[in-house]
Design a protein around this nucleic acid. Structure first.
Length: 260
DNA sequence: GCTCATGTTCCCCT
DNA sequence: CAGGGGAACATGAG
């Protein structure tokens, strides 16, 4: 699931439940998910400490605790759950134990992970270069970023170094709303087109964050995109399907144009 | 059995 | 250096 709206939801799970409470212990049912620290090192860094206010940047969640920062990335199937102590889910890979509950890092496919950093500099080294977060991105900022970008608009919006937080579903949804072909060259889009992308991004993010995920809502591309022979919710034209920017892509050949 | 999956990284090309 | 394409990672679901 995890795109920006999901991770924003996980940030709230941590912020609403686990912040400022004493971490009693850390348990690691699957150490594969600890990417740069041993279970012992994670336990030493966090036991007896408390998470402070977590920050989300794109699809990364960063929570300071004690002298350390815990970084989480959720890959394709990760999530963060606050649950009473008791039997864990088979895919719980790391558990932060509290007095009466646990914060559980769950991840079926194990593409996600948890990192430990000592300072901000190490955080940046772990996340790699990230563009401005999609939620706080300004209209003019988007225009500037796209202006110097070669290649398809979809590839540009998916590139975390350019804009952080947009994933495959969101980008297809945004381009569908903006009526723009995913293959359209990112640079030299008309100001009208860039405005349409920006407005579609704002609205899609707003609605998705509210539901804590990209909804498969009526009137959205997401509602139909995985059906064979799916039709455009707007005009009924059969959707096109192809790999763009390395990802499965759906778009409407009638309402989404390449033209500037 | 087969294909595909909301992410990232690495390798090889152009 | 910038981008594109493909494979790999691990584990299902249909």
């Amino acid at each position: 699931m995890p795109e920006l709206p999901d991770v924003e939801g996980f940030r709230r799970v941590l912020a609403d439940n686990a912040v400022r409470k004493r971490i009693a212990a850390v348990e690691v049912p699957d150490r594969d998910l600890l990417r740069n620290a041993s279970p012992q090192a994670l336990g030493r860094a966090l036991t007896g400490k408390r998470f402070r206010e977590p920050v989300r940047h794109g699809k990364w969640l960063i929570a300071p605790a004690g002298e350390a920062h815990v970084l989480m990335h959720f890959g394709m199937t990760g999530s963060l759950e606050w649950e009473p102590r008791g039997p864990r889910h088979a895919h719980d890979r790391v558990a932060f134990l509290y007095r009466h509950a646990e914060l559980r890092f769950r991840d079926m496919r194990k593409f996600g992970g948890i990192w430990l950093a000592n300072d901000e500099e190490e955080c940046h080294a772990i996340t790699g270069p990230l563009g401005p977060d999609a939620v706080t991105l300004g209209r003019e900022q988007l225009h500037e970023l796209l202006g110097s970008r070669r290649g398809a608009i979809k590839a540009a919006l998916m590139d975390q170094r350019l804009v952080a937080g947009l994933g495959n579903l969101l980008v297809d949804e945004i381009l569908w709303r903006a009526r723009l072909d995913p293959h359209a060259p990112a640079a030299r889009l008309s100001s009208r087109r860039r405005d349409a992308i920006y407005d579609a991004m704002r609205e899609t993010l707003r609605a998705s964050i509210r539901t804590r995920r990209v909804p498969r809502a009526s009137g959205w591309l997401t509602e139909v995109r995985d059906r064979r022979g799916a039709r455009c919710p707007r005009c009924g034209t059969r959707l096109r399907s192809a790999t763009v920017a390395g990802r499965s892509t759906r778009w409407c050949p009638r309402c989404q144009r390449t033209a500037r």
